[in-house]
């Protein structure tokens, strides 16, 4: 059959069937793709809780940085109060290290450097460490690593 005859017949019934068929196929395809996308989307996550207790305020000396690498958080106590920093580098997610002698926080992956208040000292990271929520609960400090707070937020105790 040559293309001219298909085109001539394409005005009426054949055209309708052609588009209905294609439309049905497209709808089914889009639906299938959506179901697949939802299928690979995990519904339950067995991940460590983002909120955890770190200890009583008295156990941290003034002007100290306490690193908890297992839970990827720095707890800093200044003369004003407490704040918590996420130890996850804002560049590409490596765990940073606090070096006491230099009074700074270093990322081993790409050489970013941060001050102990979280601010950026040297790239390639483009922003400082995330300051995360900290609150006092039953006389104990509780940190939530998923909740980011203002850069100058301090918990006064």
């Amino acid at each position: 059959m040559d293309s001219q005859r298909i085109e001539a017949a394409g005005s009426g019934r054949r055209r309708f069937l052609w588009f209905t068929g294609l439309g049905a196929l497209g709808t089914a395809g889009a639906g299938g793709a959506a179901v697949m996308l939802d299928f690979v989307h995990p519904k339950v996550l067995f991940e460590p809780p983002s909120s955890f207790r770190v200890g009583r305020p008295e156990s941290f000396p003034v002007n100290s940085v306490t690193a908890d690498y297992a839970r990827k958080v720095y707890l800093v106590r200044t003369e004003v109060g407490f704040f918590a920093l996420s130890a996850v580098c804002t560049h590409l997610g490596c765990i940073t290290r606090h070096v006491e002698e230099e009074g700074a926080i270093f990322c081993p992956c790409h050489g970013s450097k941060f001050a102990v208040d979280g601010s950026l000292l040297m790239g390639p990271a483009t922003r400082g460490l995330r300051r995360i929520a900290i609150r006092l609960e039953d006389g104990e400090l509780v940190v939530d690593s998923e909740l980011e707070v203002e850069k100058d937020a301090v918990l006064r105790v």
Partner: peptide, 12 residues
């Protein structure tokens, strides 16, 4: 998130 099947690199 979809590649890792979560927020962290774990079993998923």
């Amino acid at each position: 998130f979809l590649l890792l099947g979560g927020n962290v690199i774990g079993e998923n």
